[in-house]
Simulated scan of single mutants.
Amino acid sequence: MNLIVWNFAQTCSEQDIRAFLQYELGHYLKNVTVYEHGTPNAYAHVELNADVPYVGDVIAQQVHGKLLGGVALQASAMPFDEKPAPPQRQ
């Protein structure tokens, strides 16, 4: 299962994002890749240690709205074979 998390504050470093996701997701986190950190379009692609689709949805709901750097995050779960980028900020 994959998760996309976006809407990171521009002040967040890649290490800040990784540490936050590791803390929030704990043993569910398999791998995280951060893209475009320090920009308005920063997002993270997270591989989850979960094979059941609803687990990814529940995790996305838990992360969605959490604050990092004073900004509410957005998150969405997706199947293994999909890796779309999140919507671009205007």
Results as ranks from 00 to 15, higher is better:
residue 2 N to I: 00
residue 2 N to T: 11
residue 5 V to T: 09
residue 6 W to K: 08
residue 6 W to M: 07
residue 6 W to T: 13
residue 6 W to S: 13
residue 6 W to I: 09
residue 7 N to L: 07
residue 7 N to V: 09
residue 8 F to Q: 11
residue 8 F to T: 12
residue 9 A to S: 15
residue 10 Q to Y: 02
residue 11 T to R: 14
residue 11 T to P: 00
residue 12 C to H: 09
residue 12 C to G: 01
residue 12 C to R: 13
residue 13 S to Q: 10
residue 13 S to N: 13
residue 14 E to F: 05
residue 14 E to W: 00
residue 15 Q to A: 10
residue 15 Q to S: 12
residue 17 I to T: 05
residue 17 I to L: 04
residue 17 I to E: 03
residue 18 R to L: 09
residue 19 A to S: 14
residue 19 A to L: 12
residue 20 F to Q: 08
residue 21 L to W: 11
residue 23 Y to G: 07
residue 23 Y to K: 14
residue 23 Y to I: 06
residue 25 L to D: 08
residue 25 L to P: 01
residue 25 L to V: 05
residue 26 G to P: 04
residue 26 G to C: 05
residue 28 Y to N: 10
residue 30 K to L: 02
residue 31 N to Y: 00
residue 33 T to S: 15
residue 33 T to R: 15
residue 36 E to V: 04
residue 38 G to K: 13
residue 39 T to Q: 04
residue 39 T to Y: 02
residue 43 Y to D: 00
residue 43 Y to M: 01
residue 44 A to R: 06
residue 46 V to Y: 02
residue 47 E to K: 02
residue 47 E to C: 01
residue 47 E to N: 04
residue 48 L to P: 06
residue 48 L to H: 01
residue 48 L to K: 14
residue 48 L to R: 01
residue 49 N to C: 08
residue 50 A to W: 04
residue 50 A to R: 00
residue 51 D to E: 01
residue 52 V to A: 10
residue 52 V to R: 12
residue 52 V to F: 06
residue 53 P to A: 10
residue 53 P to S: 14
residue 54 Y to M: 11
residue 54 Y to G: 00
residue 55 V to W: 11
residue 57 D to C: 08
residue 58 V to P: 00
residue 58 V to F: 04
residue 59 I to G: 03
residue 59 I to A: 08
residue 60 A to L: 03
residue 61 Q to D: 14
residue 61 Q to Y: 09
residue 61 Q to A: 12
residue 61 Q to N: 12
residue 63 V to S: 01
residue 63 V to H: 06
residue 63 V to E: 04
residue 64 H to C: 03
residue 64 H to R: 13
residue 65 G to Q: 10
residue 66 K to H: 10
residue 66 K to T: 12
residue 66 K to Y: 02
residue 66 K to F: 05
residue 67 L to E: 13
residue 67 L to N: 14
residue 68 L to Q: 05
residue 68 L to F: 09
residue 69 G to D: 09
residue 69 G to H: 10
residue 70 G to D: 07
residue 70 G to K: 08
residue 71 V to Y: 11
residue 71 V to L: 11
residue 72 A to Q: 15
residue 72 A to P: 11
residue 74 Q to G: 11
residue 76 S to K: 15
residue 77 A to Q: 08
residue 78 M to V: 07
residue 78 M to D: 06
residue 80 F to S: 07
residue 81 D to H: 11
residue 82 E to F: 08
residue 83 K to S: 06
residue 83 K to V: 00
residue 84 P to I: 07
residue 84 P to K: 03
residue 84 P to M: 03
residue 86 P to H: 09
residue 86 P to M: 09
residue 87 P to S: 09
residue 87 P to H: 06
residue 88 Q to F: 09
residue 89 R to F: 04
residue 90 Q to E: 02
